[in-house]
Structures are given as structure tokens and as C-alpha cells.
Amino acid sequence: MFVAFLKFLMRWFQRLVVLAALIALGVWLFYIGREHQIFLDNKTLGDFKALEQINVRVNDSEIAELMQRERDVRKVVGPEFEIKAEVFNEDGEIINRIAKKIKINFSKDIMINLPAFAAGEENFIVPAPR
């Protein structure tokens, strides 16, 4: 009787474990499979003046060349992406190179303020436009 009950308990425990594993799998898939839109925004934000030109590459995507007050969007899949930027001055010379890995975790779309990003500031992520 007691053994049977234990077996019953065991079986339900196992089922719960399997269920939990499946839910965890779902969450993980959600995490790694989500597609995000990364808005790249070369606009003045507070103290950070818009840059003359900045070329940005998100992961392996096409390079976005952004002049002053320009905005572009790139799509990435997964919780993390790499962003590489080259900042140009008026003469077309590269004055700064930045590469950074950014985590977005579960949030959907984000916007990167490039002047702030180029300045090495931490708060360069702003809410995505609707």
C-alpha cells in the first residue's frame, strides 16, 4: 500500500519535473529565438550632440551609414548582439572605433542613441519608438 503510494508520488514527481523542464525549454526558446528591432538613432540626446557620420554594423548585418539626425533599424535574433561603430568627422576621417556586446534579454525592441553610445556613456539605450 505504502509502496504503491510512493510509486504514485514518484511518478507524479517525475511528471512535474518533465513539465518544469518543458516550461524551462519554452522560456529558453523564447529567450534565444526572439527577434528584436534595433533602432539606430543619430540624434542629439541631452548633452550628446548628433554625430557628423557614424557607420554602424549590428552582428553581421549590412552597415548602416547614418548622417546627422538620421535613423535606421536592424533586426537581430537572440538575447545578445554585437555592435561595431565607426565615427567620422567632417572630413570623413575615422575618429573613433567602438565595439560592444549588448544584452537585451527579454525586452523586445530597443533604440540606441548613437551619440551617447559613441561617447562611451552607459545610458545609451532608450525606448523604441512605437
Partner: peptide
């Protein structure tokens, strides 16, 4: 917005 194989699974 889940894409690719993870989306299908």
C-alpha cells in the same frame, strides 16, 4: 517575434 528553429519548436 520568435523566429527560426526556436520559433518553430
Amino acid at each position: 517575434g520568435i523566429v527560426g528553429i526556436p520559433g518553430m519548436v
